[in-house]
Amino acid sequence: MLSITEENYIKALLKIGSQSEEKAAAGINELSAHLGVKPATATDMFKKLKEKKLVDYKKYGKISLTEEGRNKALSIVRKHRLWETFLFQKLGFTWDEVHEVAEQLEHIKSPKLVSKLEEYLDFPEFDPHGDPIPKANGEMVPLDKMVLSDLKPGDTCIVVAVKDTSILFLKYLEKLGVNIGTQIKVIEKVPFDSSLLLTIEDQEPRNVSIKFSESLFVRK
């Protein structure tokens, strides 16, 4: 059985590695920064995880999950996103509140509880932030998405997921009236700084920064 710390490490590797062109591979400095620990501390932990056959790791090389490690990491992500969905749909938590609580609940070990939770929620495919929820076998529904910054003037899209799930950004989106399913139309892209002039649903046009447009996943 894995400790909470070990679970957090393989989950971090799954998250960072999935953004790499290599197979779930990431460097120790990137991982330690994400986890908020010193590189030496992260190195020691990944050595332990290698002994448990959960990661492939060579000194000074990138770290990747083994098949067993990936399955365990997906199981943790599955629990996290199901709990987020439960908190959001059934208990009235806002989408900027669910992550911190789900971080605690994701370490519950009972497979039966997770299965019953999924059934109770009517087998949701996406969490409140638009992220796909892994099934029990690890499969996820593919999400057709692109970042808002890739759109051109005249394009219309709907919001499908949030790339930046920080509390500050989620609260800002809430203030603007942006949720999953919100329609956005790009009116102009400013050449100077790549900021966008756009309309959100039927609101007045507004400017948003490049940081904003790179933090939102949309579908045309």
Rank of each mutant, 00 (worst) to 15 (best):
I4E: 11
T5Y: 06
T5F: 04
E6Q: 00
E7V: 02
E7G: 09
Y9C: 01
K11E: 12
A12E: 04
A12G: 06
L14N: 11
K15C: 10
K15L: 10
G17M: 06
G17Y: 01
Q19P: 07
S20M: 03
E22W: 04
K23E: 12
A25R: 08
A26R: 07
A26S: 02
I28W: 05
I28H: 02
S32Y: 05
H34S: 12
K38N: 13
P39C: 07
A40M: 14
A40R: 12
T41R: 12
D44T: 13
D44F: 14
D44W: 14
D44S: 14
F46D: 09
L49C: 09
L49W: 00
K50E: 10
E51R: 10
E51C: 07
E51T: 02
K53A: 11
D56W: 13
Y57H: 05
K58R: 14
Y60L: 15
S64K: 13
S64M: 10
L65G: 00
T66E: 07
T66P: 00
T66K: 01
E67C: 10
R70C: 15
V77F: 04
R78F: 00
K79D: 15
H80R: 14
L82I: 04
F86K: 11
Q89A: 13
Q89C: 09
L91K: 13
L91S: 15
G92Y: 07
F93M: 07
E97Q: 08
E100Y: 08
V101W: 00
A102T: 02
E103I: 11
E103V: 15
Q104Y: 14
E106G: 10
E106Q: 15
K109N: 13
S110R: 08
P111M: 04
P111K: 04
K112C: 14
L113M: 13
S115V: 12
K116W: 08
L117P: 09
L117N: 05
E118V: 05
Y120V: 12
L121H: 02
D122P: 08
D122W: 07
P124Y: 01
P124T: 01
D127M: 07
D127H: 08
D127N: 07
D127L: 00
H129N: 13
D131I: 11
P132A: 05
P132T: 08
I133K: 01
P134C: 01
A136E: 13
G138L: 03
E139L: 10
P142E: 01
P142H: 06
P142G: 02
K145L: 02
K145C: 03
M146T: 14
M146Q: 15
V147N: 09
V147K: 11
S149F: 02
S149N: 05
D150N: 14
G154C: 03
G154H: 07
G154R: 10
C157D: 03
I158E: 10
V160Q: 06
K163I: 12
D164W: 06
D164A: 01
T165G: 04
S166W: 09
F169C: 03
L170D: 06
L173G: 04
N179R: 12
I180S: 02
G181S: 04
K185S: 03
V186T: 01
V186H: 04
E188T: 10
F192C: 11
S195Y: 06
L196H: 06
L197N: 09
Q203A: 14
E204I: 03
P205G: 00
P205V: 08
R206W: 05
R206T: 13
N207D: 13
I210H: 10
S215E: 06
L216W: 00
K220V: 13
